[in-house]
Simulated assay, not measured.
Amino acid sequence: MTKWTVNCSLLYTGLPLLERPAAAAADGFTAVEFWWPWPVAVPDDREVEAFVRAVEDAGVHLSGLNFFAGDMPGGDRGVVSWPGRSQELLENIPVVAAIGERLGCRAFNALYGNRIDGADPVGQDELAVEMLTACAKGVPGTVLLEPISGAPRYPLLTAADAVAVLDRVGQGTGLLADFYHLAVNGDDVPAVIARHAARIAHVQIADAPGRGAPGEGELPLRRWIDDVHAAGYDGYVGLEYRSEGPGAFAWLPRDERAATSK
């Protein structure tokens, strides 16, 4: 049985952030994931405490958390490879780790970062390896690296792009295979599963076009999920799509929403 987890940074956006874990629980889910919940790398201790308490009080498991990624609404897509912002990331790592320890989270997504005007791409890539290594050493679990779409200056578009970086970093890292992003970028998702199954440490889904719920587009998401399970993946599948209202999860029967294990 697939272990579903709800991305509460793209779903339940009509609710305050701290109310979203409880909303997911009310809809029958037992696991949630979040992008970095704050606009700064090091939020106030009281904000962190409130976030942890919201997840605990909802009775759900935090299955995934992003590192600080800059101004996401403004177009930033991570600071891992961004010269001049390494200190922010280094200060963010222990905060991420502390949340992970308290909530049992073992998957941490580090967005690579856009290409920066005036910065040497080779130098950015060297910095990324250094920072990803620091992330992997600093958190109690796996650091994920993700190809994404819709960000013209983000250099990791395919699974092969991300795996090439992971090969340089080594232990404590894995591929985040978001089937939506891979498909939109033209990657061959069945081939990715066949070639990189051993490297896939987390899966996310949305349908395309539109990044909506499964069944709203044209992607064979159920088949790809079956394929990745058949290849040995037994982790969570993150629901990272845009949909609001009572029909957001109509495609998934309620009795299938609870993860069977952590």
Results as ranks from 00 to 15, higher is better:
227 D>T: 07
178 D>Q: 10
219 L>D: 09
102 R>D: 10
200 I>W: 10
31 A>N: 05
212 G>Q: 00
126 E>M: 07
215 G>R: 05
63 S>W: 02
260 T>H: 15
260 T>R: 11
176 L>A: 03
21 P>T: 06
29 F>E: 03
41 A>V: 04
161 D>G: 04
175 L>Q: 08
182 L>I: 06
83 P>M: 12
241 Y>E: 06
149 S>M: 07
128 A>S: 15
153 R>F: 10
178 D>A: 08
235 G>Y: 07
156 L>A: 11
226 D>Y: 11
184 V>W: 07
192 V>G: 04
5 T>V: 12
97 A>C: 03
256 E>F: 02
121 P>T: 03
104 G>W: 00
61 H>F: 00
118 G>N: 06
97 A>L: 09
74 G>K: 03
131 M>Y: 08
111 L>N: 12
117 D>R: 06
208 A>K: 04
232 G>K: 06
241 Y>T: 09
90 L>V: 14
30 T>Y: 00
24 A>W: 06
191 A>I: 00
222 R>W: 01
85 R>D: 10
32 V>A: 07
57 D>K: 01
115 R>C: 01
202 H>S: 15
81 S>R: 12
143 V>G: 00
84 G>D: 08
71 D>K: 00
5 T>C: 14
17 L>F: 02
46 R>C: 05
251 W>F: 13
73 P>W: 11
87 Q>H: 13
135 C>W: 05
115 R>G: 08
219 L>A: 04
252 L>H: 08
239 L>N: 05
21 P>N: 11
124 Q>E: 15
60 V>H: 01
158 T>Y: 04
212 G>H: 00
188 D>T: 11
250 A>T: 14
34 F>A: 03
69 A>T: 12
218 E>P: 08
39 P>G: 03
254 R>G: 12
118 G>P: 01
188 D>E: 13
253 P>Y: 11
228 V>W: 07
185 N>R: 14
243 S>E: 14
246 P>A: 15
143 V>H: 00
29 F>R: 09
215 G>A: 09
85 R>F: 14
183 A>W: 09
148 I>F: 11
207 D>P: 06
36 W>H: 02
183 A>D: 05
242 R>E: 15
83 P>L: 13
108 F>I: 06
159 A>F: 04
139 V>Q: 02
22 A>L: 12
22 A>T: 09
14 G>Y: 05
174 G>M: 11
1 M>P: 15
162 A>R: 11
131 M>V: 06
123 G>A: 14
249 F>C: 15
74 G>V: 07
223 R>F: 04
245 G>T: 02
91 E>K: 13
260 T>F: 09
137 K>V: 13
154 Y>D: 13
226 D>F: 03
57 D>F: 02
206 A>I: 01
65 L>I: 10
251 W>V: 06
60 V>P: 04
54 A>C: 14
60 V>G: 00
168 R>L: 14
139 V>W: 01
157 L>K: 15
149 S>A: 14
129 V>E: 04
